[in-house]
């Protein structure tokens, strides 16, 4: 009886991808150094990314390494996560690895890469629950945003001052305690008073759509994975009310 040595061109078992039995990665690069960069991003391998990027930089210019290695790899990670083949921790370590690589390339380039825009993120005054914010940070950075991470327990004043200073396309807030979420409303009032109508996406276990809809600028962020899409819309000129219309309805 005939035997088939390789079924790859007969059928693909898409159902096995992500379960460790097969790989769903669809990107590759013929150049072995670039392939290593891709692999490091896809594997979230922060230990080896620096060596891989340096090796690639020996023969390629930094923009190529960024676009065809780091960003391409990260886009693939996002795709795999969207499709349920990758899980949250993988997305985060990949983003960490990519940023490390980016750092090296930017140094070589002599300047920082032009980012899509700046987003300020923070966890509410009085709150230390910053996991949601950390996820938002990783996803925004992975999508090419410059993230000004104000950290946790950030006083209202500081958020308002940072907005003045950095002129972000979007501000985010995370709150997990019913006692701390009230800071969002105060931030909104202060910004509006300064006629600063920047979209203010608020999320976290304590807040709800009803609560966030109760003040100006507020857009409810249900899941961290929405943040990059919202930022894209903000960059494309959607106002806070248009964002609310689009994402909260």
């Amino acid at each position: 009886m005939a035997t088939v040595a390789n079924y790859a061109n007969i059928f693909v078992r898409y159902d096995l991808i992500g379960s460790g039995e097969a790989k769903g990665v669809k990107v590759s690069n013929k150049d072995s150094a670039m392939q290593k960069v891709l692999d490091c991003v896809l594997e979230g391998d922060s230990d080896n990314i620096a060596a891989a990027v340096n090796e690639a930089l020996a023969s390629k210019d930094p923009m190529t390494v960024i676009n065809d290695g780091l960003i391409r790899g990260m886009n693939e990670v996002s795709r795999l996560w969207d499709e349920g083949e990758y899980y949250l921790p993988q997305a985060i370590v990949a983003s960490d690895a990519m940023l490390q690589g980016l750092d090296i390339c930017e140094k070589k380039l002599g300047k920082a890469l032009e980012k899509k825009g700046t987003v300020i993120t923070h966890t509410a005054e009085g709150d230390i629950h910053d996991l949601g914010q950390k996820i938002v940070n990783a996803l925004l950075r992975a999508n090419g945003y410059n993230v000004v991470d104000l950290g946790k327990d950030v006083p209202v004043d500081e958020v308002v001052a940072a907005v003045k200073e950095h002129k972000p396309v979007m501000v985010t807030g995370t709150a997990l305690m019913t006692t701390t979420m009230t800071a969002f409303e105060r931030i909104s009032k202060r910004l509006v008073k300064d006629s600063n109508y920047v979209p203010f996406v608020c999320g976290g276990g304590a807040v709800s759509l009803e609560y966030v809809s109760g003040y100006e600028l507020g857009i409810f962020g249900k899941d961290a994975s929405e943040a990059p899409g919202m930022a894209n819309d903000a960059v494309n000129g959607l106002s806070w009310s248009q964002l609310r219309e689009k994402w909260n309805n």
């Binding site: 005939a2 088939v4 079924y7 007969i10 059928f11 078992r13």
Partner: peptide
């Protein structure tokens, strides 16, 4: 050929 097309699909 028919068999091998799908036996392990």
């Amino acid at each position: 050929m028919m068999i091998h097309s799908d036996k392990y699909r």
